[in-house]
């Protein structure tokens, strides 16, 4: 087993433990935004898609990497925007219709 693989496995296991620790405290109220937020994080696959797109030389590879980049970007952009839209609605006090229209920041 190469040193790189061993290092990668270490990172993998520690990140899993980190995920367990971070999520366990989230209240049920926020489970949907949490899942949607986690959903956008796996959009990091865009980085990988860009890497394969950069070195794609034959047509098949180029088509595959284009689809991968498009898919991953949809995941990233859509995920973050929709999570923000959801979280923006969680308020401590009900918003008065007039004040709400004035103060609500554009996402």
């Amino acid at each position: 087993m190469s040193t790189e693989l061993l290092a990668a496995l270490t990172v993998f296991v520690l990140a899993i433990l980190c995920g367990f620790a971070v999520i366990s405290k989230v209240p049920a109220t926020l489970h949907t935004p949490l899942m949607s937020g986690a959903n956008s994080i796996h959009g990091i696959v865009l980085v990988g898609s860009m890497v394969i797109a950069a070195s794609a030389t034959d047509l098949l590879s180029q088509v595959i990497s284009f689809i991968a980049v498009a898919f991953a970007t949809m995941n990233v952009v859509g995920g973050y925007v929709v999570t923000d839209r959801m979280l923006q609605m969680f308020r401590r006090k009900p918003v008065e219709p007039k004040a709400g229209a004035a103060e609500s920041p554009k996402a």
């Binding site: 990172v11 990140a15 995920g19 990091i44």
Partner: peptide, 28 residues
């Protein structure tokens, strides 16, 4: 799956982000 893609490409950030989501999804 994203973490596995990280192993395929040897890319740490994919491994970290993928493992985070994998673990959090499992808890939920």
């Amino acid at each position: 799956a994203v973490a596995m893609a990280g192993f395929v490409l040897g890319n740490d950030v994919l491994i970290i982000a993928g493992a985070l989501v994998g673990a959090s999804g499992a808890i939920l």
